[in-house]
Design a protein around this nucleic acid. Structure first.
Length: 438
RNA sequence: GUGCCCAUGGUGUAACGGUUAACACAGCGGUUUGUGGUACCGCUAAUGAGGGUUCGAUUCCCUCUGGGCACCCCA
């Protein structure tokens, strides 16, 4: 009995099957993404899952957790050092440079949907292979682009039925940030003894991260710490203020959070995170984040090119949609179900099915079933509007039965007029539904 | 990577250191060899893996695997 189980191979840790039931949510999300992309003028790009490890080392940052301990890295047969992508922005920038997209009208607006890989410890809403969608606008410095991307990230999730809050900050350009880090270090230097163990490690390596430590003492210290906003350059400050002004024009629930520092090194200036705030205990769940990455193109060998973008974790969105009980249609029902009885009818109906399908009808069948009862049951499950029934009797009369699945009323019609008869009924059906909706 | 909790058919649950591991749903078959959405009957199917304690383990212990939570980090 357990012999079968002994040989069973199970899911690799942190991986996930996305089953048909869940696909209903994914479909809605994909549709919404396409819709936003069309309206905002973004085009889809797909980059490979495998890239040179150096791409991520140089962009995401060698000292970040994502690169230093979470990458799926390996040496290929040919000796190349490769990694499964832990995020998608670096690849897109690589592609932008490689394909000379600087010659296209700027900004180049791209979006992606695809799996990413991080060898992190799994938890609800956190997988080692996880899907992200993201929007990137490369080649434009204008703060209105920042605001628009924030708007996309906000409205898209909002329209999926989630309760969303955006938190915004500016992490400054490289110069002002270095300036700020110095100030921050000075501030923490005097209070170093109050910091937790982790923060003492962070102090030198990643000073900014001290700000979002969850430790109570550290948080208190963080609250009184000098804020990045006060150390922005004139230009940076102006840019950020403009972003906020545009946001004020829109109906977006956002708050300023001076403690937002993104986990990837390439971010500059505007940075934001998107949270679900439906949880009763007031806890915010991060669904996505984004920001400017004005130095990224140049750091990969391109011309200095400003850019903004964001990414959202799809599994987390699905999870929240399920929690929020966002309604999903249980798959489309079909219009016509073809049922058959007997050898002859079977042969004829396999052709009939094909013909109806080719003529654009939404049809369904279970030709392998023999009993009419089974077939009607499955027609019911597929929520067919009408079932065509063909048996020995109908074949010899050259007729067919049309059964209205709602009323159970059946009519015999001429087999040759079948398409017309179906059409007539479907039109009537449609008209009735329209009236009902009114 | 660290700590805590969990693991029974496809799903949701039950039970016990000792005959055949119970129930519901789903699946399949039948009652009705031509009628579903609403009946009845039957069948299939499980103690995650490995080791130990024991006369005997699904139950107790250890390891592994997987899941959940927290930390870390992030999406």
């Amino acid at each position: 009995m357990s012999k079968k189980k002994k040989n069973r191979i199970q899911l690799v840790k942190g991986m996930k099957d996305i089953l048909p039931d869940e696909q209903l949510y994914w479909n809605i999300i994909r549709k919404k993404i396409d819709n936003f992309a069309r309206n905002y003028g973004f085009f889809r790009i797909d980059t490979p899952i495998v890239e040179f490890t150096n791409l991520f080392k140089r962009t995401v940052g060698e000292d970040t957790d994502v690169v230093s301990k979470e990458m799926y890295s390996f040496v290929s047969q040919g000796g190349d050092k490769l990694s499964l992508r832990p995020e998608n922005t670096a690849s897109i920038v690589r592609s932008y440079i490689e394909h000379g997209m600087l010659n296209l009208p700027q900004p180049v607006k791209l979006f992606y949907v695809g799996p990413q890989f991080r060898h992190d410890n799994p938890q609800a809403g956190r997988y080692r292979q996880f899907w992200q969608f993201g929007f990137e606008a490369i080649g434009d410095n204008d703060p209105i682009i920042d605001a628009q991307l924030i708007a996309i990230s906000y409205y898209l999730l909002k329209e999926l039925g989630l309760d969303i809050e955006v938190q915004v900050n500016s992490v400054g350009d490289v110069n002002s940030r270095n300036e700020y880090i110095k100030v921050l270090k000075k501030y923490y230097q005097d209070n170093k003894k109050f910091l937790c163990k982790d923060c003492n490690l962070r102090f030198n390596k990643n000073t900014l991260r001290l700000l979002d430590c969850k430790n109570k003492k550290c948080q208190e210290l963080g609250n009184d710490a000098p804020q990045m906003v006060d150390y922005l350059s004139e230009e940076g400050k102006e840019h950020f203020m403009s972003v906020l002004e545009y946001l004020d024009e829109l109906d977006i629930k956002y708050t300023l959070n001076p403690k937002i520092v993104r986990g990837l090194d390439y971010y500059t200036r505007t940075a934001w995170e998107i949270f679900d705030c439906s949880s009763k205990d007031g806890k915010l769940n991060a669904l996505g984040g984004g920001g400017r990455y004005d130095d990224l193109v140049e750091s990969l060998g391109g011309r200095p090119t400003p850019a903004v973008g964001f990414a959202v974790g799809i599994e987390r969105v699905v999870m929240k949609m399920q929690e929020a009980k966002v309604p999903v249609s249980k798959g489309r029902g079909c219009d016509i179900y073809v049922a058959q009885l007997g050898v002859e009818a079977r042969k004829k109906s396999i052709r009939l099915f094909e013909e109806l399908r080719a003529n654009g009808f939404s049809v369904s069948e279970n030709m392998s079933k023999k009993g009419l009862k089974d077939q009607l049951e499955s027609a019911d499950k597929k929520r067919a509007k009408y079932t065509l029934i063909m048996g020995q009797k109908e074949i010899s009369d050259d007729t067919i039965l049309i059964r209205d699945m709602e009323s159970g009323v059946q009519e015999i019609v001429d087999y040759k007029k079948i398409k017309m008869e179906i059409k007539k009924r479907l039109d009537k059906h449609l008209a009735k539904n329209l009236k009902l909706k009114k």
